[in-house]
């Protein structure tokens, strides 16, 4: 790992602009394209938005800790909240359902788009949740060349 830093922001939607700017700059440092910078920024924004809406139920008194790890070939972003436990299984089912629905043009509903976007953009998405310590969402995005190598190594493993 080359660099790592943490930021802690209140669970206030107003703070998302600051989070987006920070993540965009971190992505630029790793060497992502403009398009990828925008996509990763969006995924992190969606992760934070879901924390505010679902883990803190819209309350602005909570906190989100964002750990950013910069590597030569990837960026890893860990979002941690201290709010309500989430139902990971329910979330998985929601993503599957959403993907199926989106295949059928015109049958779209507003809910669940954020989670679907996170899964579409990031190469790795992992949730860990518990009643005592909130939820940890780990997001990883590889640089294009590194992603191809990662896919190749996974398929041969």
């Amino acid at each position: 790992m080359k660099e790592s830093f943490d930021i802690k922001v209140p669970s206030n939607p107003r703070m998302m602009q600051l989070v987006r700017k920070t993540i965009a700059q971190a992505c630029e440092m790793v060497g992502f394209s403009e398009r990828e910078v925008h996509a990763v920024t969006l995924a992190v924004d969606e992760g934070c938005t879901n924390i505010i809406r679902h883990c803190y139920q819209g309350s602005e008194t909570g906190h989100i800790v964002i750990r950013v790890r910069l590597y030569d070939d990837k960026i890893e972003i860990i979002l941690r909240d201290f709010g309500d436990e989430i139902d990971v299984e329910k979330l998985r089912k929601c993503v599957k359902k959403m993907k199926r629905k989106l295949k059928r043009s015109g049958s779209v509903r507003p809910g669940g788009l954020g989670v679907m976007l996170i899964h579409s953009i990031m190469d790795k998405v992992h949730y860990k949740t518990s009643q005592d310590s909130g939820t940890v969402l780990r997001l990883v995005k590889y640089l294009s060349d590194a992603r191809e190598k990662e896919i190749a190594s996974n398929s041969t493993a």
Binding site: H38, L42, R109, P110, G111, L113, G114
Partner: peptide, 13 residues
């Protein structure tokens, strides 16, 4: 320049 899923969901609505 930027729209997230809450913006998209508003348009769907």
């Amino acid at each position: 320049d930027y729209m997230d899923s809450s913006g998209v969901a508003t348009l769907v609505e």
